[in-house]
Amino acid sequence: MIFEQLKPQVETIILNTEKTVNERLLEICELLEKHIEHYNWVGFYFRNGTKEELLLGPYVGAPTDHTVIPFGKGICGQVAVSNQNFVVPDVTTQDNYIACSITVKAEIVVPVFVNGKNIGQIDIDSNTPDPFSEADERFLEFVCEKVATIL
Rank of each mutant, 00 (worst) to 15 (best):
H66E: 13
T64I: 10
C76Y: 05
T67Y: 06
V88T: 07
G120I: 00
N83R: 14
I69K: 01
N96L: 08
G77S: 08
G74F: 04
Q121G: 03
P111G: 04
K105A: 14
N115G: 12
V110C: 10
T128H: 01
H66Y: 13
S101M: 02
D90N: 14
E107M: 03
A106R: 04
T103N: 05
A135Y: 05
D125A: 01
N96P: 06
A106Q: 04
G74Y: 04
A80S: 14
V112F: 05
V110K: 02
G72W: 00
A135S: 12
Q84E: 15
H66C: 11
Q78I: 09
D95G: 13
N127C: 12
P129G: 06
A106K: 05
N118H: 06
V112H: 01
S101T: 09
P129C: 03
S126T: 11
S126M: 04
V91Q: 03
V87A: 11
N115Q: 03
E134S: 07
S133G: 09
P129F: 07
D65A: 15
N115Y: 05
V104T: 15
V110Y: 04
V112Y: 01
Q78T: 15
I75W: 03
V112T: 13
K117W: 00
I102K: 09
V87S: 11
G116W: 00
F71I: 12
T67R: 13
A99F: 03
G74V: 06
V87Q: 15
T103I: 02
T67S: 14
K105Y: 02
T103A: 14
D123Q: 04
I69C: 14
T92F: 12
S82V: 01
I69V: 15
C100H: 04
S82R: 11
V110H: 07
T128M: 02
H66Q: 13
V79T: 08
N127Q: 15
G77C: 04
V109N: 05
V81Q: 14
N85M: 08
S126C: 10
C76I: 03
I119R: 12
I75E: 13
F71K: 12
S126Y: 07
T128Y: 08
V68D: 14
T92N: 12
G120Y: 00
N118T: 06
D123C: 01
V114E: 08
V112G: 05
A135T: 06
E134H: 07
A135P: 02
P131S: 11
I75F: 02
I98G: 10
T64R: 08
Q94I: 11
C100Q: 06
N85L: 11
K105M: 14
V109W: 00
Q121N: 07
K73C: 10
V112M: 11
I122Q: 00
T67M: 04
Q78Y: 09
T93E: 15
I102L: 13
Y97D: 11
I122K: 02
T67F: 04
P111T: 03
S82I: 09
T92I: 00
T103V: 09
Q84G: 14
I122W: 02
D65N: 15
C76S: 15
D65K: 13
V104D: 10
Q84K: 15
N118Q: 01
A80G: 12
S82F: 02
V109S: 08
D95T: 15
A99P: 12
C76V: 07
G120S: 01
N85G: 10
D125Q: 04
G116S: 10
I69Q: 11
F86I: 14
I108G: 02
I122E: 10
V114A: 05
S133I: 04
P70V: 07
N115L: 00
I108T: 13
N83G: 15
Q94R: 13
I98T: 07
